[in-house]
Nucleic acid binder design. Structure first.
Lengths: 166, 166
DNA sequence: GAGGCCTTGATCATATCGATCAGTCTTACA
DNA sequence: TGTAAGACTGATCGATATGATCAAGGCCTC
């Protein structure tokens, strides 16, 4: 994967505040030449550095005020099918496969408790999933963010130069 | 919180593919008038609908290839201090307070296992946190996403009209 | 020391931007 | 049922940013 250098981080930090910031303004704020900024932006597009889904919408603004984790045990032979099915459930925001006895951890949202029950059911019915357990989040203490990583992350181990692309 | 209507969703879906898409192009793709699109975009900015942190950078592109959950038990009296301290750790991407015996669940990233150990230690040293337990993610099955919610979420219960703003 | 890559700073014609206006439509409310 | 408020439209304007392109300079690897 394309590794971001310090120039990228500065650019992305600015973009993070306003993704639609003008190239000219970006150049000023980062102290780079306009052409450079343009080239980087172009590269982000072509290389797909920025994830599809670059627009962060808080789920609550869509009416999804309830967060929860659904942990699922599954038949290991059907992992791919299960994942494929989960991917089709919009309320599943994230899903991870942890080391340990639980096989999949899904971060889901729902409109209300009833809706959460429905979502949990949908997950339980995914192929290969044998059992689920739901844990409601009382509070979203820190919402998903990458910004601090851009700003402070790295430090001593930071690269000054981008690693070879290919 | 500002509730997004169907027009917003269409706009945001387009923006999601390319946050820097031209207003003119947005207007064409959504079938709206240019002025309307401009007004909405302006509103997103002023009302802060789009989260700060609108640029989604995959942590792996910053060198953080390891994902994990750190669950923490804490002295309930010091919740605020703990959260404040966690917020200062860049590697903490998200944090939730679930109902149940574990008090905080943090989604963290790290460069490698050693680095993860360091991050877990930092969390353990936060004020009020009495005990932590780390669970490594073998695989990020579904990365954080909101797009499907924009596209399919809602359905029968979708609002056709934005709820009163104030 | 040569070649490659990235950056810079400049230019150009074109397209977009933000602001503004009057007119129409919808919804909410009396 | 009529009126008022708000949202969307379609149009205009000048100012500005855009994308493309170029030659030149810097830094790296080989």
């Amino acid at each position: 994967m394309y590794q971001l250098d310090d120039t990228d981080r500065r650019l992305l930090l600015e973009l993070d505040q306003d993704p639609r910031m003008t190239v000219l303004l970006l150049a000023q704020r980062t102290g780079l030449a306009r052409g450079t900024v343009q080239a980087r932006l172009e590269r982000y597009r072509t290389e797909g550095v920025l994830r599809l889904g670059s627009t962060m919408v808080p789920p609550a603004a869509l009416g999804y005020g309830l967060h929860a984790t659904v942990s699922a045990e599954l038949d290991q032979h059907q992992l791919d099918e299960a994942v494929e099915a989960l991917r089709r459930i919009p309320e599943v925001l994230e899903c991870h496969a942890p080391a340990g006895d639980i096989d999949l951890l899904c971060h889901v949202v729902a409109r209300d408790p009833d809706d959460l029950y429905r979502v949990a059911e949908e997950i339980r019915l995914c192929p290969g999933i044998t059992r689920t357990s739901t844990s409601v989040y009382l509070r979203e203490v820190i919402g998903y963010r990458v910004r601090p990583l851009l700003r402070h992350g790295g430090g001593p181990r930071a690269r000054t130069r981008r690693a070879p692309v290919r």
